[in-house]
């Protein structure tokens, strides 16, 4: 009944490990295609943007562009919805940060030395060493910047994961077994409080995403959190009309949960 997040360096074997863990636990394996499928439900243009923006280092224009911010918010919302179902293995996309408050989420990172990764990519993609190395450096660079811009953290920091495995000496099967062995302890952490907290995080993400993907509103400073009692909205809105629109969307999304606005109207 737990959740596993797998963050990995390209070519370290993280996908195979994630798939195998999911298979053995009979969990759903959530990767790019699952997420695209969910994102598309929100509108075809998000899927298009998603495929361009996903795992991509945003340029300085994109970073403040509504399509990037909207995409990230949609991504987070989809990941929380999947996490709420439990029994999932989530690959990448900052899942470890999204679920850092959830004690029954096991946050795993898979790494390997550059040489091993070059070898794996070279085999898997059928390219020579040089090409493999280029692919890797590009992918590492793009991915780490995406995560840094989206979550403002270095992606390999031990504080952000429960366990990190280096597959240079550990075989894939060993890592799978170690992850499986930790699941019973994680299951014990599924308390009503922890589940409620995940529901709160998911609701805040939904509200955030509904506002950010609404084309009548552009509020880049928006922050939506759940403080345990209510949904709290922070940010600077352009005028009263925009503020009203934001609150309207938020109330509709939040359902029975109360809203507390700490929004400022610009100039007041």
């Amino acid at each position: 009944m737990a959740i596993v997040t797998i963050s990995r360096e390209c070519g370290a074997g993280g996908e195979e490990i994630g798939r195998e863990v999911a298979r053995k636990l009979k969990y759903e394996y959530v990767s790019k295609s699952t997420i695209y499928r969910d994102i598309e439900k929100h509108g075809e243009q998000w899927l298009k943007w998603g495929m361009e923006l996903d795992d991509h280092a945003p340029s300085i224009w994109e970073r403040y562009d509504r399509s990037f911010a909207g995409y990230v918010s949609l991504l987070e919302h989809c990941i929380y919805e999947l996490a709420l179902k439990n029994n999932v293995v989530i690959l990448g996309r900052g899942g470890n940060w999204l679920l850092q408050e959830i004690p029954y989420a096991l946050r795993v990172r898979i790494i390997a030395p550059m040489e091993d990764r070059i070898r794996l990519v070279s085999d898997r993609e059928g390219v020579n060493r040089e090409a493999a190395e280029k692919i890797l450096r590009f992918s590492d660079h793009e991915r780490s910047i995406f995560l840094k811009k989206a979550y403002h953290r270095d992606w390999s920091h031990p504080d952000d994961y429960d366990m990190t495995f280096n597959t240079s000496h550990l075989g894939r099967d060993e890592v799978v077994k170690l992850i499986l062995d930790e699941i019973p302890a994680r299951d014990k952490q599924i308390t009503p409080e922890a589940q409620e907290r995940l529901r709160q995080l998911a609701l805040a993400a939904r509200v955030n995403s509904d506002i950010r993907t609404d084309f009548h509103v552009f509020i880049p400073t928006l922050e939506v959190v759940h403080d345990g009692t209510a949904i709290v909205l922070r940010g600077v809105s352009r005028d009263l009309k925009q503020q009203g629109r934001v609150l309207e969307i938020a109330r509709r999304s939040a359902g029975a949960t109360g809203i507390r606005s700490e929004l400022h109207v610009r100039g007041t």
Partner: peptide, 21 residues
């Protein structure tokens, strides 16, 4: 982390869990 085979965060894992791993 590149200099190790396994890294453990005892902020979220107990001593027993890490020992068992």
């Amino acid at each position: 982390p590149e200099d190790y085979d396994m890294v453990f965060n005892t902020g979220s894992l107990s001593v027993d869990e890490v020992a068992r791993q």
